[in-house]
Structure formats: structure tokens, C-alpha cells
Design a protein around this nucleic acid. Sequence first.
DNA 1: CGTCTCTTTGAGTTAATTCAATGCTCGTGG
DNA 2: CCACGAGCATTGAATTAACTCAAAGAGACG
Lengths: 237, 237
Amino acid sequence: MHMQAIREMRVSNGAIHAAAAASGLPAMPAGLAALESVGARVRFAPGTTIFTEGDAAAKTYRVLCGSVRLCKHMADGRRQIVDFRHAGELFGIMQLDRYAFTAEAVDDVVVVAYARAQVERLGEQIPSVRRSLFDLLSEQFLAMHRHLVMVGRQNAKERVAGFLFALAERADASDGDTVDLPMSRQDIADYLGLTIETVCRELSALKKAQIIGTPDLHSIVVRDNDRLEQLALGEPS
Amino acid sequence: MHMQAIREMRVSNGAIHAAAAASGLPAMPAGLAALESVGARVRFAPGTTIFTEGDAAAKTYRVLCGSVRLCKHMADGRRQIVDFRHAGELFGIMQLDRYAFTAEAVDDVVVVAYARAQVERLGEQIPSVRRSLFDLLSEQFLAMHRHLVMVGRQNAKERVAGFLFALAERADASDGDTVDLPMSRQDIADYLGLTIETVCRELSALKKAQIIGTPDLHSIVVRDNDRLEQLALGEPS
DNA sequence: CGTCTCTTTGAGTTAATTCAATGCTCGTGG
DNA sequence: CCACGAGCATTGAATTAACTCAAAGAGACG
């Protein structure tokens, strides 16, 4: 499963902290600092698989840099992206013996892998750790709910606007700011339950309406964040 | 919030167990037996609201009988049903200070309401309780993933077949068995991200194809469970 | 600098929707 | 007990949002 790992090295607590401080790596979520010491860093090239749905769930991961897509593949090749994980975020924290989805690197990705047994042991011993894990799961539930509403009840324009708005919000961007768009159009389509052509058309429409700009394929400029939010909420255009 | 509660009474541990034994009420999930003692029984009439999205999340609920729908309402009235909860199942177990969805009684419902503070205290004290809660959340994640794939990437026939197949599976039904269908066609539509007309048409098609029967509005007879599963998985019709 | 992949745009098709009409159930009251 | 009315379900017809298919354009990369 980890054939694509370019290097894997066990690092000391101090080494990770030093690296984080040196390179501006994202901080561990509050309450999970105790995990730092048990992680191993692994790098994945764009498009490679981190783990596959159904694999024994041996590890929990945290993204250090790059973006990861979590997806479900159907027998006939259809794909639904469940969520993306960006720098600082965790995935594979569920209490299940097999992974519920496949995790793939969108771009160049470095993760820290924590042995699940360790995570569970720390959870048992340290109340703040389990509290944080539980909170994290609850947060992810909220995200899934929003996603489900988007896919189940919103039209293409609303979905694309909602996706971009969420991206901008996460990056704390306001009008004029450029937001990184690491994933492909196909990834966006598979996240939103649309086709790549529909995503392209809606992006073009947003661009023509001066709501966003697309300086290059992998970034967007937020021109009218309020309008973007209105569209995402389904207000008449 | 609990205006619709017809009666609410605090019951002793023994009383609940006795009632469960007497009337065939569903057993508590393994590991959560310790909760039994802190519950209060509440009844809700069909269509009434148990709690509303955004309310302070004071309680965790377990369904004793009847069915509950968990839904998200959009400003313009569009609705997405996130999940249903049937006898024996819990809802409102997330570690969030506000409910993430609205819970409504589909039919005549009796729930046991557990004070969240109590649940959290028990979780802190008893490893098996928190383990069970965590497992439960993980299970619910799996269900949401399946749901998301269904809504995002399956066509109307696959969604309706998938819904019925899941219902039959839950009831452990095989060919010839009748399965209870407590929710309305509109509820099914709002769960599947379809319109009520499309749901009706697909049900009619399944009936004409001898895959199911509909003796009355609120039950279906499973005639060809294998075919139902094939359709749900997206195999050519 | 050619090739390969990804993106964009256009044209035509279709699955699902909307709108409309009818049928069925069930509860209520005469 | 039956008739009536309200609400839910079903079916049909017309419309449309999103899809498929096709071709051209733009980047990335050896």
C-alpha cells in the first residue's frame, strides 16, 4: 500500500518541533500535542495512493503540506470525493478496523503517520486527547452535512460557488486575495457530484460575472466574496 | 422546544429494564448499559419537532419506537434528510454545543432523552462507554459516506433501489418478507435528493419489474432482493 | 518543440424536474 | 355507516439543467 512512499523516517519529538518551527509547518490541533512524539513522516508524489478503502486501518495521518483527497470508488469507475485534507488537518481517525475511503495525494504531499495503537493508547490515558479526537470527528460531521446538502439539494452554480466560498473562507481570504486551488477540475467535479464540463462552465460564468478571477489553473482570485456567499446560499442570481 | 412532548417522566433503571423486557423494546447498544439509569422517556406525535438545528445540544436521544428523521432545512424551504433513526438507535451524540440538524418524528415516536452532561460524565468515567460512543460515531460516518455516494454519483433508479435494499437489510428481510416503510414519499425524496414524483415513478418501475410489491403505502414486499442489490450497485438493468 | 494531458467551449441529448390532473386514504362529522 | 374533504400519492406531458460527445485551446514536461 505504501509503495509510493518516497521516504519514511522515524523522527524524535524534538526533531518534528524543530522542523515545524523552521519551515512554518502547521501546528498540531490543541489537545493533541501528546501525539507529536509518535509520528513518522512520509512523502507522497501527486496522484499516488496513501491508503485504499478496505485496507487494515493501521495509521492515523496528519497533513504537513500539500492536499489529500479522500474518495470512494464505485465498481464501474464512478468516483465521489468525500473531502479534502489540507496542511494541518487529520484523516483516518475513525475507530474502524478498515479504512472507509481511499486517500490519494492531490499534489506533492508530506504527512505524519501515527500508529493507530499509539493514538488509541494516548486517547485512553489522556482526557484532552480523546476530547480533541471526539471534537475533530464532530467537526468532520458538520462538514459532511454541509456537503450532503450541497450535493443533494443545490444546483451546479450553487455547488461551485459554495466550494469556492468554503475554500476562500478556510484561507481567510477577502476581496482581491488569491486562493490556492490545488486540485484538478475533475477532482472538484467528483467532490460536487458534477461533470468536469459543468464545473468549467460554472467557473467561466463566475469569471464573466466578475465574481472570481483565474490567473492560472491552480489559483483563483476572490473578487466579490459577498456575492460568492449569496450564490452559495442559493439566492437568485 | 419540547412543546410537543405529550408526557415526560423520569424512570428508574429498573423501570426501564422492566418495560423493555415486557414490551420487546430494543436493547441498549453493548457498552452503553450504564446510560440506562439517566434517561427520561418522551413521546412525540407524527410530524412534531424533537429539536431544531442550532438549539443548545442539551440531550442525547435513543429511539424506543417509531422513526425519526434528521434534516437540514435551507432558507428557501429546500430540505435534505441526513438520516433516519429507528427503534434502538441513538442521535444527538456529537460533541457540539448546538445541534447540527433538526430532528422530527416521522410517525408516533417514543424516545429516551439522556442529559448530555450525564453522558459526558459517564464517558469520562467508563472506558467502555466512550469506546461505544466513538464506535457509534464511526458507524454513522460509514453511513454518511454511503449516502453521499448515492446522492452524488448514482441515478434515480440506483438511489431508490439502494434505499429499499438498505431498509430490507436492516430489517433482515429476504424474498417474500414485508418491510415497514414508515416515512412518506416526500421524506424518501428528501433523503435521496430527488423529487417526490421521481421516487413514485421509480417505485412503480420496481413494482412493474416484480422486484418489489407495495401492499399499502407504508410497507413494501421484497420480491427479488438480489436484483434490488444489483440495481443499487449500478449494474445494467 | 512535439507530445500528452488537462481544460474550455459548443452542440445535441437525456434524465430528472416542473406543472398539471387524477386517484387513493383516512379521518371527521352528518 | 357513509359522504365529504384534505392531504398524500401516482401518472402524464412539457420543460430544463446537467450530461455526453466532440473539437479546439492551453499548459506541462521531457
